[in-house]
Design a binder for these strands. Structure first.
Length: 110
DNA sequence: AACGTGACACAGC
DNA sequence: AGCTGTGCCACGT
């Protein structure tokens, strides 16, 4: 079965959906995990076409900054969702990001 | 086909 | 994790 472009997107969605409650991951981690180490932008772009059932609020940039909050409804929804999961967020930024960071390449085993 | 844009990352200051 | 510049891939115009 050859790999379609769609497969890349599906993988991204699949990984994000598998992110455990109270955890977050980064675009770069996903990109690297999928073999597109330097193409984190593609991951972010993929989110642009996210199906909607995707917990995109658990996906942030490498410093834990809610770079995509602007794409959510309102202005604080993304932060509220994360805080609701027990993640400390301060000014659109995750506190102790490293502590909440969930690496698919380590935690997940493909 | 070229240029600009984007939910990023890394190297350099 | 603070700012700037460059590289990356895909898409819209």
């Amino acid at each position: 079965m050859p790999a379609d472009s769609t497969n890349f997107f599906e993988k991204i969605f699949d990984v994000v959906k598998q992110v455990p409650y109270g955890r977050v991951t980064s675009y770069g981690a996903i990109a690297s995990f999928l073999g597109a180490a330097r193409s984190a932008r593609m991951v972010g772009w993929a989110m642009n076409g996210c199906p909607g059932d995707l917990p995109a609020h658990r996906v942030v940039n490498r410093v834990g900054l809610l770079s995509g909050k602007h794409h959510f409804e309102g202005t604080n929804l993304m932060q509220q969702l994360l805080e609701n999961e027990g993640i400390e967020v301060d000014d659109n930024k995750i506190v102790d990001f490293k502590k909440y960071f969930w690496d698919p390449a380590k935690e997940l085993d493909f």
